[in-house]
Design a protein around this nucleic acid. Sequence first.
DNA 1: AAGCGCGACTATAACGTTATAGATTTTCCT
DNA 2: AGGAAAATCTATAACGTTATAGTCGCGCTT
Lengths: 337, 337
Amino acid sequence: MPDRNPKQPTLRTISELSGFAVPTVSRALNDAPDIGEKTKARVREIASRIGYVPNRAGVRLRTGKTNVISLVLGTDNEVTDHTGQLVSSIARTLRDTRYHMIVTPYFPTEDPLRPVRYIVETASADAMILNRIEVEDPRVAFLMERSFPFVTYGRTIWRERHPYFDFDNVSFGRIAAESLISSGRRQLALLAPPKEQNYAQDMIAGGREIAQRMNVGLDILPGITGDDPGETIRARIINYLGEHPETDGMICPSTTAAIAAVIGCERAGHALGRDIDVFAKEAIPFLGFFRPQIKTVLEDVRQAGAFLANAAIQAIEHPECAPLQRLVAAGQGNVPP
Amino acid sequence: MPDRNPKQPTLRTISELSGFAVPTVSRALNDAPDIGEKTKARVREIASRIGYVPNRAGVRLRTGKTNVISLVLGTDNEVTDHTGQLVSSIARTLRDTRYHMIVTPYFPTEDPLRPVRYIVETASADAMILNRIEVEDPRVAFLMERSFPFVTYGRTIWRERHPYFDFDNVSFGRIAAESLISSGRRQLALLAPPKEQNYAQDMIAGGREIAQRMNVGLDILPGITGDDPGETIRARIINYLGEHPETDGMICPSTTAAIAAVIGCERAGHALGRDIDVFAKEAIPFLGFFRPQIKTVLEDVRQAGAFLANAAIQAIEHPECAPLQRLVAAGQGNVPP
DNA sequence: AAGCGCGACTATAACGTTATAGATTTTCCT
DNA sequence: AGGAAAATCTATAACGTTATAGTCGCGCTT
């Protein structure tokens, strides 16, 4: 076996090279106020020359700081998920910081508090990024109570008190309803995820507002997640359209839902663009390419990832500051085919 | 601020509760041969009662073992990437092991050795999982030389000597060509990623084999990545079809490529299913829903993730064993609409 | 009965870092 | 000039773990 460890330099190495004591070297590198400028310069010069990188385990053991941010990942969409974009944009943003990203998954069937509690109790990260936020998310309550740094991708009822990134789904609901109504549609249905999810509530609120004002019907088909098999969603839609044949517009919160809706509509005998229109939201411009009749709105997940990463760092390093918060309106994403 | 750290129990806690010395407790929990059975039982009982979890920083500092597996992530597809599936399936597989997964991204423009070298030199993981493998991947050469544990998602020319997971792209190339030819197509074009990528070479080999045997034309449109903007790919396809109007079949290695191909064909005036056919590979059944004329083959990325995670653990814990390797044929993925 | 080996435990030290308190020198005030 | 205050450095200890060497008692051999 070749020499796998040419022995990484430590503070001790710098200490020996410079003649300063190890704690002095440490403090110099950490820019402590009681170290002379010349000393700092000398130490830093040596450190960068020999490529010194602090040993994470040493720092972590001594300070309790892990320099890790954990992405707590709920299952996502079986189809075009934005998980990939989220993960890679967060990882990229953290790349030039001291922080590493670890991914902690959990199953939808298990206690959502489990991974969160584990991280807090074993102190295995300095902050967490949570997705799939519920309006009264127990994880958020838990973390606020323990005052553990975190950011949410979505908003809770305690939104003023914690950092978040969210897309404006009230606005999406409005835009979707307006678009369908302006195409002459009069009886809309909204495919909604479980109502606990904050974006579901917002989307419904926005849609309802417009529907009432314009005096058109708006039905909710609740409890539809991207996690459900497409077949299940399709079956529900076919069934629904059988009972409500007057439906002529559908609002879908995801690519998965939209696909299911399109297939469902057509199998139920509703021709897309003629009998019924679909309006959808997606993370990647996709639907519009294949069914130009589908109007879509785009969510820039990479932007979300970058913000979440920065907000997490802010929550760790400046807990005294006001939490970073951003609400972004979804952009029009329908690309001409 | 509430009490955020109700002080996690350590070996010392168990030592005090049991009366045994700290090293004894440590050895008992690690099932060392020189500890009595009764002692082990007693220590284990206390440990599980008080919920002892070894402090990662302590272990890491002392042993040099990080209990971390790093996923080194090349950029992926702008559209339906499989990154999300890969990340979450790896994370899930590692969930009930001692290992955490950290994600290390890199930019396509920068030295691909950079993240790999960083991890090896700072010993920030016990193993690596690499994707986007080139046939003579310098990262693989580097890691083999240092005998650092790793697994590849794809194969190199040194394939016998390292663990890998790969989909059989020779087989995909054959299937794609056969399918198109059996539909009467006689002049095929293959949208290929950069030829360094191992799957590109395999796909081309498989396609060529069939094309020659059946005496039909097969052109390569090289250097097309999922990372390219769709617009760029489309332009190239339109341009190509202008110069080669006799082309009547296209083979696409990804959803992105297929979308670009479809749009490109139609803009160039070739009607899908009549003038030209498209055969594609995707990670999620998608294309078939929207353009039933497109035949697809499915890759089960979750299976890949699970295998890669296990192979990484094997590489760490049993470096003496033969490397775990798996080659999987892609399955038919066209779902009837 | 002295010596040996064995089983089962303990004492010590070390991994790399940083907090704390203390030491030394320099500066400056009166 | 004498002493206080500041500036700059060092010594020590500690975070939690485990490798190593050592201790102790006991049964066994000769």
